[in-house]
Design a protein around this nucleic acid. Structure first.
Lengths: 167, 167
DNA sequence: CTTGACCTTGGATACAACTCCAAGGTTTAT
DNA sequence: ATAAACCTTGGAGTTGTATCCAAGGTCAAG
């Protein structure tokens, strides 16, 4: 039997979070003291751990609600139902990964095109790429020959001095 | 010169979005008609395209606000500043990818452990994994020998019938 | 009997990026 | 002159997941 603060500490969540889960139907205390304090059983703690594990693999609270309703009535559900939820989520996660991979690639290209040096950003390849089509990013070396003397000034060299934070 | 609806159509956003960007300081029309209609110039349209391109590589509106303030005052910023924003974002995106990859792996393991068949979920490996440590997921075949006769009933076989949706 | 740590409730706030609505004014086409 | 299509404003709603707050009740120690 735990009071809300005890369960919270045990599972490393905040009491607010437990009340939030209760309000949203994920986890209600099995009973209350006469004075109204929430009392959670070991069973409730297990349910909370179920929730937290499901969160840890990426499920949203809405999805966890579904999982919980299956969990409480297993015999009326098929493996197919459960696996369906997992596979839907997987597809969902993979779609997000694909989007982020796209962002990553674009950002890498932008980053590579820019010297990152202390020079004025007036001819920064990144800004230029954002000013026109994102597709054709060109290195600062040959993007602007506004000053032929500084031909190589804007690329590669200066970058080294600043980027000690690269792992 | 565009009215809000024209610019919206041109750039495939909603008029609400343009007003939203204005309210948040990203893009204001260069002028208004006597009756108060917003009037956007070609310059404004370019600025909008800048915003949309930045969004397309993953920047949030807050980050785009920074980019725009650099863009409007390039000579007082260095390439390092711009590249810094890109690299920060890149790190950010990569962190999210890492998290999602973790979700993906967990979900794949869960999915693989479950037959996905029409059998009762009473011994579903996915639910069992969520009931206890997420780490040791075992296939339904050997997870429960509560009924030796049905040893292979719960795995692999039935899955084929349902999963025609796998691409 | 007071202090401090705990608990209660309802409601507000936060983030991101819109999206929608109502009530009314303007423009354009017929 | 009137209907359709456009525009204005301020403000509310959405999704997801909490987090925080204020005003007050409860409990155990000293």
């Amino acid at each position: 039997m735990y009071r809300i603060g005890e369960l919270a500490q045990l599972c490393e969540v905040k009491t607010d979070t437990l009340r939030f889960y209760e309000k949203h139907g994920l986890l209600s205390p099995s009973s209350r003291t006469d004075s109204g304090y929430r009392i959670y059983t070991e069973n409730d703690a297990e349910r909370l751990r179920f929730i937290l594990r499901a969160k840890a693999v990426g499920f949203t609270l809405a999805e966890i609600t579904e999982l919980l309703s299956i969990e409480l009535d297993k015999s009326n559900w098929a493996c197919a139902d459960v696996k369906g939820l997992v596979d839907d989520k997987l597809a969902n996660v993979e779609a997000k990964i694909a989007e982020l991979n796209h962002f990553q690639l674009s950002l890498q290209r932008l980053s590579q095109a820019c010297c990152g040096g202390p020079e004025s950003a007036e001819h920064c390849s990144i800004l230029e790429a954002l000013e026109s089509s994102t597709d054709n990013i060109r290195c600062e070396n040959h993007s602007h020959t506004h000053d032929d003397v500084q031909f190589t000034k804007n690329c590669q060299n200066k970058a080294v001095s600043k980027n000690s934070k690269e792992k």
